[in-house]
Design a binder for these strands. Structure first.
Length: 850
RNA sequence: GGGUGAUUAGCUCAGUUGGCUAGAGCACCUCGUUUACACCGAGGGGGUCAUAGGUUCGAGUCCUAUAUCACCCACCA
């Protein structure tokens, strides 16, 4: 097949992926060890962004590498219903149509979102294919699939039975815009400029007033106490007294509690149990009443005085301040910087509200997880992430798993209509009302937090507990994911994995950094700096995107998208393409079997290939993706293309060329699957069908090279490089290289002539011209030596400083005494070489002084 | 307030357990179309490795401070 001059990925990629799929190349078939990765399921509704491309690229490299190694590799794809996320997107769409979620029942809403997600799912799967992700589609799992829902129910039941689940009236983080509660971890805190108001609360006995400081004056309507620190002498006499709460006619106590920070504000704190987490705890300790003055819509309730009712929180703040000012209760106000929780989706300020919700008691789950981490059962890349995770788990609070949205897995719990605290577990969630033992129960209208069900992902997708998949592939070999879900997802998978299966869910965790925008800032739609993965693929090809995005990227380090790296990637693919084009043109007539190295270049190349292959293998075994790519790049470009292929134009070994090409393509395949497979498919049909796909071929075993012959080529390279250097620096035109006695030059005259761009290499009786100094051969380049004087002087100076440093090191007795023998020997050798070098340079330089 | 990471060439970044005369790609300069490739080839310039101390025969690499930036955590009323 005649290949065009330039590789055009658009013409091949989709066909190649179809070929892989049709051939079942991605089914776990290897006979070796199991190697399993599940894709952290992206939102089924969203278009693939560049961060997903990075994740898939890294995982796919690992999977393809292990597949080529002969491992039984499972790459399991999935998609996430992403409960709240997706509902929020859907609500935006409803809003555009002038509708809202309140126009529908939960069931109607659920059905509509289901259809909405189904529409977008095709798009999502297409993008997986575009990126070349070698996933086994037969294992595709959606987070609302029956088996995932069932697993969530069984987990909930087990926790229920074992007392880890409780229903409690607690303060939860509530978004009044979206009408749902969140887990602590979902709240986004921002540092904001606010005001701190100092308000006088007069003592009931008329003996004065106590001044409290607050950033939320409107919540005073729900105050049920004032707290001071027990050791705070300023307030000693106030403890036990009562104050008259302004704007209301309630009397509330002044009490002492350790939590108060004497240095903050006035050292006296208003206690609003229903709207502040701290105050909630204080109230529980002191048995204070809870007065809810803000409702789920973010408006003031009937518990407040008439004039404030139904105002929004913002309006109420102004009204309260105005009323307090009129009454003369405001002492002063000042600006303060404090952090405020927001809904991560809409930015609405999170209201802490008291609600009845399902909570998971986390301590019993966290402890075994901490133990496993401390025992090093899971290897982390980078290591520091393990310690971070331990710190997180050690401070974990109970997890609110109820969400007041439609799009999610219904919580399988029913409440006795006649007895509020009688809850039962039942999976008949399609029923609203059920009868059990003659009693009537109503279903909890809430759904699970998405993370509750997805925390079972590693074993639920593998059909825990009895399937072959589970037995073969659990625990997963690798969990590769972004740092942003280390806490919400990785930590919970670990806890639930240990809780349900008794085993860690994965053996290794690799955390990648974010792909930032080109300017290094975070990508966001509103800033308009989002980099589109499909556009990059369209322009440069999927391989270029994969290479560009992994190049030079260390684990867990955020880095901006860099177009230049993608261009490098494209150029690299094109280089490979042309290497293949050249080699295929040289191997038209079949040279089967004759792959033995003959020339020194052959041996040299095999040695280099072996070094590169070993290095790449080692790097990939420890997920050093970028380092592996770097080694590959330089082997292909510098050694294979620039030296070996150029040398092969003088004396070609077609059989070896062909086999080197195969090995190179295999080494490259995990990184750039499309171009390598495309080239592979241009090879003449093999009778052996097993080898018809590169994707399922074998990681290369490299033939042994003769080190002496390889060294001979190094000597040739040194001569060629020096000739090129001299020619370039003095602008000579095709000089001749003379030698007196040299087998090396005699045997490789043609090669050196060609590589160095000489007129000829020829033997003479006496050398003339400029003597080469970088080789032990006696040879002279036929150029005006005087023109090279300056360069020689510069080189001499360089040698002098090298020698000086080496001598200083060797004359240091403690160095010779303490450094390892090999290092000292190496230094000695370096010094010898440097001296020899200097002698040659000096001799050559001396000739100009006559 | 606590924690983690970063700080290396004009730009984006590598640099594994301390042995480096500190690397890559891009950009820049000079030369070049030799029948794989201009998405190319040959050659070149460019860095007191943030700062200050310390450990060591030896530090970009380890330790301690400091500065700047980024992110994460926390019950700053």
């Amino acid at each position: 097949m005649e290949l065009p001059k330039t590789y055009t990925p658009q013409d091949y990629e989709s066909d190649i992926y179809a070929l892989w799929e049709k051939s079942g190349a991605f089914e776990p078939k290897g006979k070796g060890n199991s190697f399993s990765v599940v894709v952290p399921p992206p939102n089924a509704n969203a278009s693939i962004h560049i961060g997903t491309a990075l994740t898939l690229a890294l995982q796919d490299i690992a999977i393809r590498y292990h597949r080529l190694r002969g491992d039984k590799a499972l790459f399991l794809p999935g998609a996430d219903h992403a409960g709240f996320e997706t509902q929020a997107v859907f609500e935006k769409r409803l809003a555009k149509e002038g509708k809202s979620r309140f126009d529908f029942t939960r069931e109607e809403l659920y059905q509509q979102i289901w259809d909405f997600v189904a529409e977008n799912r095709a798009n999502f799967e297409k993008q997986f294919r575009q990126l070349g992700a070698s996933v086994d589609w037969s294992h595709f799992t959606f987070t609302l699939d029956d088996k995932i829902v069932k697993r969530a129910y069984q987990t909930f039941k087990k926790m229920w039975d074992e007392g880890l689940i409780y229903r409690g009236e607690r303060l939860v983080n509530f978004c009044t815009f979206h009408g749902t509660a969140f887990a602590d971890i979902e709240v986004e805190y921002q540092e904001e400029q606010g005001k701190l108001w100092y308000i006088n609360y007069p003592l009931t006995d008329g003996s004065g007033a106590i001044t409290i400081a607050t950033t939320r004056p409107e919540t005073m309507l729900g105050d049920t106490a004032v707290a001071v620190h027990p050791d705070d002498t300023r307030y000693e006499n106030f403890i036990g007294k009562t104050v008259k709460l302004p704007l209301t006619n309630r009397e509330i106590p002044v009490l002492a509690d350790d939590f108060v920070d004497v240095k903050f504000g006035t050292g006296a704190v208003k206690i609003t149990p229903a709207h502040d987490p701290n105050d909630f705890e204080v109230a529980r300790r002191h048995d204070l009443p809870f007065i809810q003055i803000i409702n789920h819509e973010g408006r003031i309730t009937g518990e407040a005085p008439e004039e404030f009712r139904n105002l929004t929180v913002g309006q109420a703040r102004e009204a309260v301040l105005r009323a307090l000012k009129e009454a003369g209760n405001i002492d002063k106000e000042k600006y303060i910087s404090h952090s405020v929780g927001h809904c991560y989706k809409c930015g609405t300020v999170i209201e802490p509200l008291i609600m009845n919700q399902w909570f998971v008691d986390m301590q019993p789950l966290a402890k075994p997880a901490i133990k496993a981490l401390k025992e090093g059962k899971i290897k982390f890349y980078p290591k520091a992430k393990c310690d971070q995770l331990i710190a997180y788990l050690e401070n974990l609070r109970d997890w609110n798993i109820s969400r007041q949205i439609a799009w999610g897995i219904p919580i399988p719990a029913f409440q006795n209509v006649d007895q509020q605290d009688d809850w039962i577990f039942d999976e008949r969630v399609t029923e609203e009302i059920i009868e059990v033992n003659g009693k009537t129960y109503r279903r909890d209208p809430d759904v699970f937090d998405t993370w509750f069900s997805s925390s079972s992902w590693p074993y639920a997708t593998l059909d825990y507990p009895d399937s072959d998949d589970f037995k073969q592939f659990y625990p997963l070999s690798l969990m590769e994911t972004g740092g942003e879900i280390l806490y919400p997802w990785v930590s919970r998978m670990l806890m639930l994995g240990l809780y349900i299966t008794g085993e860690i869910p994965f053996k290794e965790v690799y955390i990648h950094g974010y792909v930032m925008a080109e300017d290094g800032s975070k990508m966001s739609k509103s800033k308009g700096n989002v980099v589109s993965a499909p556009e990059i693929i369209e322009k440069y090809g999927a391989d270029a995107l994969r290479l560009g995005i992994i190049a030079g990227r260390a684990p867990a380090v955020n880095r901006g998208y860099d177009k230049r790296k993608v261009e490098d990637g494209r150029n690299f693919c094109n280089k490979l393409w042309n290497i293949a084009r050249y080699i295929e043109s040289q191997t038209k007539s079949e040279q089967k079997g004759k792959t033995d190295p003959i020339s020194s270049a052959d041996h040299w190349l095999l040695a280099k290939l072996a070094t590169a292959g070993q290095g790449i293998t080692k790097d990939l075994d420890s997920y050093r993706f970028s380092e592996a790519y770097d080694k590959l790049y330089h082997f292909v470009w510098d050694e294979l293309a620039d030296w070996y292929i150029e040398a092969s134009k003088t004396s070609s070994n077609p059989g070896l060329l062909a086999s080197v090409l195969e090995a190179t393509l295999t080494l490259t395949h995990p990184f750039a699957p499309f171009v390598t497979e495309t080239i592979w498919q241009t090879f003449p049909e093999d009778n052996n069908d097993d080898n018809s796909l590169l994707a399922t071929s074998k990681w290369p075993k490299i033939a042994k090279a003769d080190q002496n012959k390889a060294a001979e080529f190094e000597a040739i390279k040194a001569i060629v490089s020096e000739c090129r250097d001299i020619i370039a620096s003095i602008g000579a035109n095709k000089p001749t290289l003379y030698y007196t006695e040299s087998d090396l030059l005699a045997n490789n005259a043609k090669l050196i002539t060609k590589l160095a761009g000489l007129a000829a290499v020829s033997q003479v009786r006496d050398g003339e011209g400029l003597r080469l100094t970088q080789t032990i051969e006696n040879c002279w380049l036929d150029v005006d030596a005087n023109a090279y004087k300056k360069q020689l002087e510069a080189k001499l100076a360089e040698q002098d400083s090298i020698i000086e440093k080496l001598e200083a090191r060797l004359s240091n007795p403690s160095y010779v005494k303490n450094a390892p023998h090999a290092v000292v020997e190496q230094t000695k050798q370096q010094l010898e070489e440097a001296k020899a070098q200097q002698a040659k340079l000096a001799a050559e330089h001396d000739r100009f002084n006559h």
